[in-house]
Nucleic acid binder design. Structure first.
Lengths: 127, 127
DNA sequence: CCGTATCCTTGCAGATACTG
DNA sequence: CAGTATCTGCAAGGATACGG
C-alpha cells in the first residue's frame, strides 16, 4: 500500500490525506449521471426504466453502468422481484443518503453562487 | 437567461433546479486538478511553478488550463508582478474559500466512509 | 520563470442491435 | 421490463517543443 504522501507540510488539511480514495469520491460526485440518479432516489426507490425516463437523456448503457458503480460502492441497493414482468428496484443505502446530504449542500452552494459565477465568466470572456 | 426547468415535478429538491449550472459546478469539483489546486491555495497564495511541484504529476498544460478555468469562475485571482524574473501569484477569492469549505466537507465524508466503501467494493467484486 | 502551440494517444460515451 | 454487446467518434489530456 502506497503511503499517501509522507510529505513535509500538511498545511492543506484533509485534502492531502488519502488522495486516491478522495479523488475517487470526488470523481463520483463530479460524474454527471451519478449525482442525478442519487438525487432521484432521494425520495423513494425507483425502477430501472423509471430512472431512465427521469434522467433523460441518459442512455441505457450509461444508466446501467452508473447504477452498477453506485451499487459497488454501497450507495444504492438493487432488489430483483421475481414477478412475471421482471421488476428491479433501486434504492439509496444509509451511506447513499449521507452522500445525498453533501451533494445537496454542494447544489445549494452552486445556487447561491450561480449569478456571481455567470458574472465572472462574462467579465473574463469580455477580454 | 434560461428559466431553470419549469418542470412538472420537483420531488428531488435542489438537484433539479438550474441543472446546467449545477452540473457545471459539480464537474469542477469532480475535476481532478481543480480540487487539488484549490486545496493548495487554501493556506496562502502560490506561484505557478510552486503549484506545479505541489500538484505533481500535473502537466504545465493542465495546470495552466485549470488555473484559467478557476480564474474565469472568480475562484482564484492571478496577480502578475513585473519583476526581473517574471512572478505570478495565484490566490483564492472569497468565493474560492467558500467552495473550499464544501470541498473539505466532501473530503471529510470520503474519509469517514473510506473503509466502508472499500469493503463494499471488495464484497461486490468477490462475485 | 511563465506560459502557449502542436501532435498524438486513449478512454469515455453515444447509437444501435440483440437477449433473458 | 431490464439489461448486455459491439462498434465508432470525439474530445480530454499527456508529451514535447517553442515563445514572452
Amino acid at each position: 500500500m502506497a503511503h499517501p504522501l509522507p510529505d513535509v507540510d500538511d498545511t492543506s488539511g484533509l485534502c492531502e490525506q488519502g488522495r486516491d480514495l478522495i479523488r475517487d469520491v470526488l470523481a463520483r460526485v463530479g460524474d454527471k449521471w451519478s449525482v442525478v440518479v442519487i438525487c432521484q432516489l432521494g425520495d423513494t426507490s425507483r425502477r430501472f426504466n423509471e430512472l431512465r425516463r427521469m434522467s433523460e437523456p441518459i442512455t441505457q448503457r450509461m444508466l446501467s453502468a452508473t447504477l452498477r458503480g453506485l451499487e459497488r460502492d454501497g450507495l444504492v441497493t438493487r432488489t430483483v422481484h421475481d414477478t412475471k414482468p421482471p421488476r428491479v428496484d433501486y434504492a439509496l443505502t444509509p451511506r447513499g443518503f449521507s452522500l445525498l446530504e453533501i451533494v445537496r449542500a454542494l447544489a445549494g452552494w452552486a445556487e447561491d453562487n450561480a449569478a456571481g459565477i455567470v458574472d465572472s465568466r462574462t467579465a473574463f470572456d469580455a477580454r
